[in-house]
Structures are given as C-alpha cells and as structure tokens.
C-alpha cells in the first residue's frame, strides 16, 4: 500500500489547484509520492493518474523520462558525483572511484545497510566548485577524498539528519497560496478577454506574431 496518504492527498489537491490544467501537476505529484515512499511505486502512479485524470501509463511515460524518479527502492541518501567536464578536469573520476571504494559498491549500487546509493551524475551547476557532488540534491563543493569520507561518516552517524532530509524530499518549504491572496488558476478555454490592467485599445506592440 503506497498510495498517497490523506495528508499528501490534501497537498496534492492544493498543487493541482495551482494549474489551469490538472495534468501540469503530474511531476510535482510524482515528487510528492517519492517524498512519501522514498521511490515511485506503482500504486502511487495509479493514484496520481486518478488525481490528475490520466491513465497510469501516461504517468509512467512522463515520470520515467526524468532521472530523479526512482522506480526501485534507493538508499536514504542518494549521492550524485558529477562527472561532466569541469569536474572531470579536477578529479571527478578519481573521486567517484574513491567513493566506490569507500562505500564498497559500484556506481549505481546501494550500500548493504541500505543507507547510501551512489550514482555518477551529469553537471550540477556548481562547476566552479569542482569536483562537486550532491546528497539528496544538496551540494557539497570542492570535495576531497577526506571530505568524502567525513561526509559518509556523518551520514552514517546521523549528524546530517537536520541538514539533509531523506531521499525524495527536495525543498523543505512548500509554496502555499492563501485563498484570499491568490488570483486562482483558470482553464485556458475559460479565459475571456485580456487582463484588466491591459487597456483594451492599446495593448502592447505585436511586432512579429507570424515569425
């Protein structure tokens, strides 16, 4: 049983409400399910299909396109070692090799205790801080082999619990639009006329609509 919990269904409904069309909420909801279960389960995909009114196959089709979604259980911490050019120039290959040795798993594997999954990754937008890695999508910069060992020890001892949430949780804050403040999403087919602050006669220039 890994459908979304009642608590998360309430969140899901709020997310769906942010969009003019409900399918737009698909990716955020798959994230939500991964936050709940640590990975994306079949039941969760079926549940999301119900919530956004598509087929489960459509949920799978979209979700499997994106690398952050895991369809099998992974460690509590997913460690992504960047291997693209800037990091590769500054020792990413050696760092990944060291990580494999330290954790005792090949890249792509999960430690025997189920705590850490090691993955090679593509550019993480911290190129000036090479070599870099992410733990559950939170950066560590200019990582030496000693830094890596220390980080693993800290993950194992629980020292980083408050800083790094378990796999599946991204931002630790969520957007909430209060009912009395939000404009509200309107289905595009139901929008009549332009926004009120745009004068009907003098709308912004249209210089090349047909380009």
């Amino acid at each position: 049983m890994s459908r979304l919990s009642d608590h998360n269904v309430a969140i899901a409904k709020e997310i769906i409400g942010h969009y003019p069309k409900q399918k737009s909420a698909l990716i955020p909801l798959v994230h939500l399910s991964q936050e709940q279960n640590g990975y994306v389960t079949k039941d969760a995909m079926r549940h999301i299909a119900e919530l956004v009114n598509v087929t489960p196959a459509e949920v799978l089709g979209t979700a499997s396109f994106y690398e952050m979604f895991k369809f099998e259980p992974v460690g509590k911490y997913v460690v992504n070692v960047c291997t693209t050019l800037s990091c590769a120039l500054l020792g990413a290959g050696e760092l990944l090799h060291h990580a494999e040795e330290k954790l005792g798993v090949k890249a792509g594997g999960t430690t025997a205790d189920g705590l850490i999954t090691l993955e090679p990754a593509e550019c993480q937008a911290a190129c000036t801080e090479a070599p870099c890695l992410q733990v559950n999508y939170r950066h560590k910069y200019r990582v030496t082999h000693d830094d890596f060992d220390q980080m693993v020890d800290d993950l194992r001892s629980g020292k980083l619990e408050s800083e790094i949430p378990a796999h599946g949780t991204l931002g630790m804050q969520r957007q909430h639009i209060p009912d009395d403040k939000g404009v509200g999403a309107v289905h595009p087919d139901d929008v009549v006329g332009g926004p009120v602050w745009i004068p009907v006669a003098v709308e912004p220039d249209t210089e090349g609509a047909s380009k």
Binding site: A57, G61, S64, F65
Partner: peptide, 9 residues
Amino acid sequence: DKLIVFTER
C-alpha cells in the same frame, strides 16, 4: 486509449 506510451528517455 492512452495505454501504450513512450517510457524512459
């Protein structure tokens, strides 16, 4: 009948 889709990438 959206029962077959592209998966993976």
